[in-house]
């Protein structure tokens, strides 16, 4: 049946034997679980995998060359979704974490085994509260929880200024489903410290300044792209910090359906944080006509529980791609020039 097809062909890692988990290893909440990611035909998926293998080469050897030569092809293919069986490898290639790993042999082991972290208790407290419905993380002190602890602890030592911040567990957890502990650690480093580019650099710093900035920018984008809804939000005193902070802090991995979260991560790693804004706007746009009629409480609820059809990656993502968001630096630049302009008039 549908399910066996999904699992037999390209399930990474150990195959869960029971039907009570979905393709990604999450315990099924309801029976109707024909997720959109599984909608692709078998042969089509196989063709895509072949194309991708050719593009990245053996163990990723051709990747850099290909990206340099045909960045647009890469971008287009990533936007269609990285095949699940190659996802772990491709994420490491895109983020540059492979290079970090090769440049730092033995470092991860050192961090895990010999160093102590001030955040150890905080991390332990959250371990069982990270993807609690996933088979890999469910077992107390099981391999999943142990890996998660090691990666988070290692990071909190590696970047003592930031340490451990709630939300990181969801990033690390997501990564651990696609790669080894050490690989996941270096990808986390690549994300938060910057390797090729750092889409999340500074996100977890004290005071969460970057989150604040993103929320502020998102509010403006809502007003710009969906003026009616923006007006409705301000009438109802709805502020993005009431619904969107976890979008930015965990890049949609906290509470969104896994098939959608993965597709967003594909693009996020290649194109950066802009995709978070675009997906956020696309969600609001898709639900626009419902949202505009809701009052405060129902509105908050709706913004935290989008309907299933809105979260279908094959509908939502094309919509997100079509939304034009100026690059963040451009926005800042424009804001500054507006300010300068106004000042030049008045003084």
């Amino acid at each position: 049946m549908d399910r066996s097809r999904g699992i037999n062909d390209y399930e990474p890692g150990p195959v869960p034997s029971e039907s009570r988990v979905d393709r990604y290893g999450f315990i099924k909440q309801n029976v109707s679980n024909s997720s959109a990611a599984e909608g692709l035909g078998k042969s089509r998926e196989a063709r895509r995998v072949r194309k991708w293998r050719k593009m990245i080469g053996v163990g990723g050897s051709d990747w850099k060359h290909y990206v340099r030569r045909k960045p647009h092809v890469v971008k287009r293919r990533i936007r269609k979704g990285i095949p699940d069986c190659l996802r772990g490898l491709v994420w490491q290639l895109i983020s540059g974490s492979r290079d970090l790993l090769l440049m730092n042999p033995g470092v991860y082991e050192q961090l895990v085994i010999y160093e102590t972290s001030a955040s150890e208790l905080d991390i332990i407290r959250d371990i069982s509260r990270t993807f609690p419905t996933h088979v890999f993380f469910q077992q107390r002190h099981g391999p999943g929880q142990r890996s998660l602890y090691n990666v988070l602890k290692a990071y909190s030592v590696f970047d003592r200024a930031v340490g451990y911040v709630q939300g990181m567990g969801f990033l690390a957890g997501l990564l651990l489903l696609y790669m080894s502990e050490e690989d996941a650690f270096w990808l986390l480093v690549a994300l938060l410290k910057g390797a090729v580019h750092a889409p999340m650099e500074g996100l977890y710093q004290v005071g969460l300044p970057l989150v604040q900035q993103y929320l502020f920018q998102f509010e403006h984008l809502v007003r710009e792209h969906l003026p009616k809804l923006g007006e409705h939000f301000s009438r109802e005193m709805i502020n993005p910090s009431m619904y969107a902070s976890q979008w930015f802090i965990t890049v949609f991995s906290y509470s969104f359906p896994f098939p959608l979260a993965l597709r967003i991560w594909d693009v996020f790693l290649f194109e950066g944080v802009k995709i978070v804004f675009k997906v956020g706007l696309a969600l609001l746009k898709y639900c626009h006509d419902d949202l505009i009629n809701l009052s405060f409480e129902k509105l908050i609820h709706a913004l935290r529980n989008f309907p299933e059809d809105a979260m279908n990656p094959d509908i939502l993502l094309p919509m997100a791609y079509s939304i034009k968001v100026l690059s963040l630096s451009t926005q800042v630049f424009m804001a500054l020039s507006t300010l300068k302009f106004l000042m030049s008039i008045h003084f």
């Binding site: 069982s128 509260r129 910090s241 009431m242 965990t250």
Partner: peptide, 30 residues
Amino acid sequence: DSGVGKTSLMNQYVHMKFTQQYKATIGADF
């Protein structure tokens, strides 16, 4: 503080249920 049971208390009160499967709250819930 984190982990003292804020989400659990709220859910017990409002939905009359308790589960071990809470995620750590990120941002805020309502």
